[in-house]
């Protein structure tokens, strides 16, 4: 094998950076102003929901903090999965014209959601400090780990859904409906405690629920979830990632034929 052939089989860092950069530019018209609009969507939702529901949950002093943690994590999940689902189709112009590893196109497509999550993490930290709940280093480390678990879930979903979307072109609409329902299944605008405990298990099956609940426990309540809980989340993330990888491995070799 020649040097050129070997180089062609590696994933150049420049390619990953260019895909992330061009995705950002295409989505936000290359301006910080465009990115601010993306931040405003969950921020405005937070303001509206806080305005309405803080009256309903007036007795809960940490409601606002729990709401902002839940909303921002949900925003990452929703935006990441939506981008990932359509990623191969959206980048079909590359897939059909050049030899490019399809998984790179899928994984880099969630970069904008990751950037937004990073910005929101800072916002969450500011809110926590402002509300006299400064997070401990252990809580921040745990939150980082939960974000990694959420990323694994989003990447797993994106890998599987992106190749299925090439065959079923209304899958994005189906997913919008699922997300709509999922927003209320995940305890974002209400505390999980208002539901009877026998239903909690079913809510935890929905992947964003443990990430949101554990993040709230660590950052807001200052309580670390149990080892069993952590094992469940890790298993959940690994399962989603592996399931997505298996579907992707089965269907992606012929992805270019379906674009």
């Amino acid at each position: 094998m020649t040097d050129g052939a070997l180089r062609a089989r590696l994933i150049p860092a420049g390619l990953v950076w260019t895909l992330v950069r061009t995705d950002f530019k295409a989505r936000y018209h290359g301006t910080i102003g465009g990115f601010v609009w993306a931040l405003l969507k969950p921020m405005s939702m937070f303001v509206v929901l806080m305005g309405v529901f803080s009256f309903l949950f007036a007795s809960n002093p940490t409601y606002k903090l729990n709401l902002i943690v839940g909303l921002f994590l949900w925003d990452f999940f929703a935006e990441g999965t939506k981008s990932g689902l359509t990623s191969l189709h959206a980048r079909g112009y590359l897939l059909t014209k050049a030899r490019v590893p399809p998984w790179v196109l899928v994984v880099t497509s969630i970069s904008n959601a990751v950037i937004t999550l990073a910005v929101f993490s800072v916002v969450i930290a500011i809110f926590l400090v402002g509300a006299s709940h400064p997070p401990t280093p252990a809580a921040l480390a745990a939150f980082g780990a939960y974000c990694v678990a959420m990323m694994a879930i989003v990447i797993g979903f994106s890998l599987g859904a992106s190749v299925l979307f090439l065959r079923y072109r209304d899958l994005n609409q189906v997913w919008e409906v699922v997300l709509q329902a999922g927003f209320f299944i995940a305890p974002i605008i209400y505390p999980l405690g208002i539901l009877p405990e026998r239903f909690h298990f079913y809510l935890y099956v929905w992947p964003p629920t443990p990430v949101i609940e554990f993040s709230r426990a660590a950052l807001v309540a200052g309580v670390m979830p149990t080892t069993r809980g952590h094992l469940y989340l890790a298993g959940d993330a690994v399962f989603c990632l592996l399931a997505g990888m298996v579907i992707f491995r089965l269907l992606s070799p012929r992805a270019a034929e379906y674009v």
């Binding site: 094998m1 020649t2 050129g4 052939a5 180089r7 062609a8 061009t22 295409a26 112009y93 590359l94 897939l95 059909t96 014209k97 050049a98 030899r99």
Partner: peptide
């Protein structure tokens, strides 16, 4: 079997965004 890097221009294009 390919033992070299291939640069394709397929169907008059290279894939633009």
């Amino acid at each position: 079997s390919t033992r070299a890097a291939i640069t394709p221009v397929l169907e008059l294009g290279v894939g633009w965004n």
